[in-house]
């Protein structure tokens, strides 16, 4: 009898592990809930609907940037130019506020510029097979430098974050639901449906899983990659516009501090940096986890240096636990 019990509990444990491995988003949501409970314990009464709105609003740009990392990581790549492109987008739009075309002109200009950066990234990676890390790093130098030059040109005209972007980035409905969801929900839906239901999405997984097999099956990887990096750069630009609206700041370095968290959010969300595994669902939870974690550390009222130490330590611990849970035995 005792043997039967052991056997049953053994089976349960195995099913447990399999469930976790197949649905890695469950432990992530558990962790998120745990962090929310922790922050409520640390500062009782802080967790309210409007607090949740603030967290979601702050997570959205990070989730979009982490989406860039997710999509590129699926193919075994990475995009280190997203922060530069995002900063550039917010800044250039703000400097064009007094142009004849107004805000619309600014947004069109930065989207074209971003697409161009993505195109160059994609050609370097897809056609010339230069490592994605290096191509996008090199392009981030180029974008940073050009944005600085633009800043010196524009220093006289003055700049301001357009009203539309401020409303979109920081406004809320009833102090709870952020307007930026208007941008984010359709974008997230397109990404998730695109990854699951379209041939293009499957190609991203195929290229990352086994590039040689993909090539032998007739996939023109270079075309897929060029489009991918253009999409990534456009998403980065959108994130940058939202950040500038959220913070009401126009600066060429505004989004730089989000580069490393964007990679961390994608990885915590279960996307493999080696390609072929992951998705945007986990990434969104990953971005929420990082935002709540930052809020928790702030609530604890520790000095900034301690926050950085804690932030880094927790990323390692979460990633390690996650790797352990989802590891194939």
């Amino acid at each position: 009898m005792s043997a039967a019990v052991t056997e049953r509990s053994g089976t349960t444990a195995i099913t447990w592990r399999t469930t976790l491995r197949e649905r890695p988003i469950i432990p992530l949501i558990g962790l998120l809930a745990l962090l929310v409970v922790a922050i409520d314990v640390a500062d009782p009464g802080i967790v309210t609907p409007s607090w949740a709105g603030v967290i979601v609003r702050a997570s959205i740009p990070l989730a979009i940037l982490a989406g860039c990392q997710t999509l590129t990581m699926l193919t075994g790549g990475i995009d280190l130019s997203v922060a530069s492109v995002a900063s550039m987008a917010g800044f250039v739009t703000a400097t064009l506020i007094h142009s004849p075309g107004g805000v619309a002109e600014g947004i069109v200009v930065v989207l074209i510029a971003a697409a161009l950066v993505g195109l160059i990234n994609g050609v370097g990676i897809g056609v010339f097979k230069v490592h994605p890390l290096i191509t996008t790093l090199g392009m981030s130098f180029v974008v940073d430098g050009l944005a600085n030059v633009w800043q010196l040109q524009m220093v006289q005209t003055g700049a301001g974050v357009p009203h539309v972007l401020r409303v979109l980035g920081s406004g809320t409905i009833g102090d709870v639901i952020p307007y930026s969801l208007v941008v984010f929900v359709p974008l997230a839906a397109v990404i998730m449906i695109g990854l699951r239901r379209t041939g293009y999405g499957r190609l991203l997984y195929a290229i990352g899983d086994n590039p040689v097999a993909a090539r032998l099956s007739g996939v023109r990887s270079w075309q897929v990659l060029i489009l991918l990096y253009v999409i990534s750069a456009l998403m980065a630009a959108i994130a940058g516009l939202l950040v500038s609206g959220l913070s009401n700041t126009a600066s060429v370095t505004l989004v730089d501090t989000s580069l490393l968290p964007s990679v961390a959010a994608a990885v915590i969300g279960g996307t493999s940096i080696f390609g072929g595994r992951g998705g945007f669902g986990g990434t969104m939870v990953g971005a929420l986890i990082l935002t709540v974690l930052t809020a928790l550390i702030t609530v604890l009222g520790l000095p900034e240096p301690t926050n950085q130490v804690l932030f880094g330590s927790i990323i390692v611990i979460v990633a390690a636990a996650y790797t352990r849970v989802t590891a194939e035995s």
Binding site: L260, I273, P305, T306, Q308, G312, V316, A319, A320, T323
Partner: peptide, 25 residues
């Protein structure tokens, strides 16, 4: 931990930077 190198060292980047600020603001 078997976490990819890029993530571990990304995280320790924050840890060392925080420690540096603790040593001298």
């Amino acid at each position: 931990t078997r976490v990819p190198d890029i993530i571990v060292t990304l995280a320790t980047f924050y840890v060392w930077a925080g420690l540096a600020l603790l040593v001298r603001a």
